[in-house]
Amino acid sequence: MIGDRRRLDWTLLVLFAGVPGAALALDEPYLLDLFARVLIFAIAAVSLDLILGYGGLVSFGHAAFLGIGGYAVGMLYQHDLGSGFLQFPVAVLVSGVAALAIGWVSLRTGGLYFIMITLAFAQMLYYLGISLKVYGGDDGMRARRSEFFAPIDLNDQTQFYYLALAVLALSLWLGRRLVNSRFGLALQGARSNERRLRVLGVPVFRYRLTAFVIAGALCGLAGALFANLNEYASPSTMHWTRSGELIVMVILGGVGTLTGPVLGALAFVLLESYLSEALEALASGFGQHWQVVFGPLLVAVALFARGGLVGLLRPGRGE
């Protein structure tokens, strides 16, 4: 079954790799932008799946790390530090440290409290972003694409796209290794029966915190890519609705599967784009209400595909 999952990963990655060619052939350059967005949200959703799916911890503030990664790029750019070799590591490091602090506090709670505390932390950072007038306040700040050495130029959309794809492939690969390692087994054990695991000799908190930091750092990397895509970093990235969307992607695609969240991100971003377009065509001004249609779709998936989209593609048990 794990073999099936890997095959699906590869299929998806190969299909994604074909997008630039297809965009060129169809003469629809904007597809490249759209799919870069898919890839970036896929990375964020995969990172969330580590704690939500495998750790069983519903973090409702994951977009905070998307924002922190973006701010790292934006702030450094504003201080004339445009090198990607600096921006990307800083984005990962700062998100990881923030995750350490947030996790340190929130992981002492569980269930509903955990949801509320992670949400509160993310909203705190959101308002912090708004209050930073030097960095654009609620408008955010401009950030050009990160600079790397000669042949690599992220201003080239295709190159940028393949960088995002490479990061997604790497995330899936590392994630897969992680969840199948001893560490991953312990993390899932804590989800299944925390008390028993502790009595078996596992200090559960440390494992969860480590997973939380890894997930936060990876999401920070997605945030750095997101700021690059938009050439902008703004507090709206950290808004709680964005955290909610990440959860929706994970659940829609299939919790605790890593592949599922990629499908979830794909479905979400495409529906967001095409549904609003279609609705806008029906009646002007209606496009922004695309979620009116999206909501019932979600309910349908929840009702009829309990394992998420991944379960539809590969019927059988979710685990």
């Binding site: 390692s181 560490f183 991953g184 087994l185």
Partner: peptide, 23 residues
């Protein structure tokens, strides 16, 4: 088997091994 694996790896001291497949 995974139930007992968890017990065994827990008793081995620490399970901060991220790389090798436990199974």
């Amino acid at each position: 088997l995974d139930n007992v694996r968890l017990a065994v790896q827990a008793r081995a001291g620490h399970s901060f091994r991220f790389w090798r497949a436990a199974r």
